[in-house]
Write a protein that binds this DNA or RNA. Structure first.
Lengths: 165, 165
DNA sequence: GTTGAAAAAGATTCAAA
DNA sequence: TTTGAATCTTTTTCAAC
């Protein structure tokens, strides 16, 4: 291997070959996963079979990773949203800390970051009290975490996917 | 009105009435928006019509907000992900700053926060250079922004929706 | 609220271009 | 890669429970 510090997965992930039809398809199905492919076909001026095959290809090459119905957390009783920066005692604890976080379902996003924090998470809880409980009785108990800093979201102004095209 | 500082929308959003069947449906369709409702029906041991009506109700009462195919940003060439805390010159600029951010498609999430930052965003760009360009030529130009702090994500460890049940 | 049955619509496959 | 046609499955509606 040319460089002992890299393996294949460390190279820049190659952007997929996406043409304008793919983009148009993606724009439609990333906004509504239940849209009939025949309707996509009509809007794109091609056959349903073409859309079917294109979507299959986009799935196969990993451009599309799946589909989901999205829920409104508040309607499920999740009224508190916060971001937290995590300081580790030692950087080498990273892996095990992330593993522990995966077991806390309220942590909905977890990133390995640079800057002042080693890990950065998004957490959604039912109440502020629920958040405090998780911080005190779960997060602070994780071996390797030195301390945490919390940024409460008072309101989510918007959320969307990466721009297509 | 009892309290001049609140209007109806400021009260705690009431969690919806969700029974175990709703939860089972949500678990399935939040993981795969394209799953046939008949398959959901089979897994739940009820009729397809029941699933159809339940999903319709969950949409009507706002528990489900929509559906989307999810894309892998890297496959679209978006290799840089960062979180940014925004300091405002004055809190009153909040509204107009958020409006300006909405016009920057690379900003995929925007929150009104407490703590050291007034606004907290997630931004996805093609490269670090692309991020720098947006910070220098777009973000810093927004009237009301004092300064920003950036936390680069080196790796997203996981991402998921709020726990159901 | 749930059901089964009917009708309408969509998904999937495939041979041909 | 795309297409239209054939087939199979799902969605949607609705009267009845």
């Amino acid at each position: 291997m040319e460089n002992k510090n890299m393996d294949k997965s460390d190279y820049l992930e190659q952007a997929a070959d996406i043409d304008q039809l793919d983009e148009k398809i993606l724009k439609l199905i990333t906004k509504n996963a239940r849209i009939p492919f025949l309707e996509v076909a009509r809007e794109c001026g091609v056959s349903g079979a073409a859309i079917h095959q294109r979507v299959q290809r986009l799935l196969n090459i990993g451009v599309i990773t799946g589909s989901e119905f999205t829920v409104n957390p508040q309607k499920l009783g999740y009224n508190t949203c916060a971001y937290m920066g995590i300081y580790l005692e030692k950087a080498k604890y990273h892996r095990q800390v992330v593993a522990a976080m995966r077991d806390i379902p309220e942590i909905v996003e977890c990133h390995y970051t640079t800057g002042q924090y080693a890990i950065f998470i998004k957490i959604q809880t039912k109440t502020n009290k629920h958040l405090k409980k998780i911080i005190d009785s779960q997060l602070q108990e994780i071996e390797g975490i030195a301390r945490t800093e919390t940024f409460m979201s008072l309101e989510m102004d918007f959320k969307r996917q990466v721009p297509i095209q």
